[in-house]
């Protein structure tokens, strides 16, 4: 098991490194002039050249790459330094430490709530195929998938924030008048609890309600479908039939089926975490959440190379970590995976 984890970690590091290389060269292939973008089109040739030197863009791509990796004089990727944003001048790592937790929080919460709904609905749907719950879930899946997530987001804002007034306006992740808790993990929900600030916790939950609802609404149809499938397979299996034939109690038989149906769910978590990470880009925009999705959009529009590189690597790292954790969990639950 330890060897497996070590191997997987090693692979993840290699993947990240490859990704860093690809991103580095890919953005430099863009027909873009980040210097002009920064100094303005009317800047003098001097100002342009000075700015170019400051950004290090006067050097060859090869030299830039060496500097980026950290083999040059300054610090680089190897030293864990992602450079400074060309726009804000702040260290990219520090900016990511602020934006990434927001995204992770929304996505994790959305996934958690989705599973909370999808597992019982999927189980009931499989146990009573074509019953009310099963058909309802099916319709819901079709309905929710019919429009893109930002459309639903806007609709929810209209209904819950403006018409009904039970949700706050989409102005970020907590009441703008509240001073955020000291960052410990960066995750407001956790930090506020750790510091005993229930008021912040409640406010943050309140503000996260609509973005989470939007994600849950669009993604849980698909999760229900997969859980239903797994459960139906387990219920129709030879081992459940055989457990009945051996006179095992209804409870024990149900446990056999549940165990088999829910074990593959951990892989679902990994997959849907990835899906929700990409959905975060639009959802964050609709709800003015300064997550990593928004951050990336801003960086790309500004040709802010260090920020783009940093954001891509940070998101990839989170995704790989989640995949790894889920694979480990799967291996722990399923002896067939362990070899």
């Amino acid at each position: 098991m330890i060897r497996y984890v070590a191997m997987r970690l090693g692979i993840a590091v290699l993947q990240l490194m490859a990704l860093a290389v690809v991103v580095f060269f890919l953005i430099r292939l863009m027909p873009a002039d980040p210097v002009a973008r920064l100094v303005g089109l009317n800047a003098s040739a001097d100002a342009y050249a000075q700015s170019e030197r400051a950004l290090g863009l006067d050097k060859s791509v090869g030299e830039q790459f060496i500097a980026f990796l950290g083999f040059g004089e300054g610090r680089g990727l190897l030293q864990g330094d992602l450079g400074r944003s060309w726009v804000t001048g702040e260290p990219v790592a520090a900016e990511l430490m602020r934006s990434l937790p927001i995204t992770v929080e929304v996505v994790s919460l959305a996934l958690f709530v989705s599973l909370l709904i999808a597992i019982p609905v999927g189980l009931i749907g499989a146990a009573r195929p074509n019953g009310l719950v099963d058909r309802g879930a099916f319709m819901w899946g079709l309905f929710a998938g019919a429009q893109p997530d930002y459309w639903w987001g806007l609709l929810f804002i209209l209904i819950f924030a403006f018409t009904l007034g039970i949700a706050p306006a989409p102005l970020g992740r907590m009441d703008p008048l509240i001073i955020p808790p000291d960052p410990i993990t960066g995750l407001v929900l956790i930090d506020s609890l750790v510091q005993g600030r229930l008021d912040i916790f409640v406010s943050a939950l309140h503000y996260l309600a609509l973005p989470v609802l939007t994600m849950v609404f669009t993604v849980s149809g698909a999760i229900v479908k997969m859980i239903r499938q797994n459960t139906a397979r387990a219920l129709n299996s030879d081992y459940v039939l055989y457990a009945r034939a051996c006179g095992l109690s209804e409870r024990a038989t149900a446990r056999y089926a549940l165990r088999a149906a829910l074990t593959p769910t951990v892989t679902l978590i990994g997959i849907f975490f990835g899906i929700l990470l990409s959905a975060a880009v639009t959802v964050e925009r609709v709800f003015s959440l300064n997550g990593v999705g928004q951050y990336s959009v801003r960086a790309i529009l500004d040709f802010d190379y260090p920020a783009i590189q940093g954001a891509v690597l940070a998101v990839a790292m989170v995704a790989l970590l989640v995949y790894l954790l889920m694979d480990i969990a799967h291996a722990a639950l399923d002896p067939r995976i362990r070899e």
Partner: peptide, 29 residues
Amino acid sequence: PAAELRQIRGNRIAIIAQNTRSSLHPLLD
């Protein structure tokens, strides 16, 4: 009734299923 049936199945009348491997739960020893 289900409870009485359970006392017969696997107890008074037992069965050796044909697909033995798929009749065993894959995740339990």
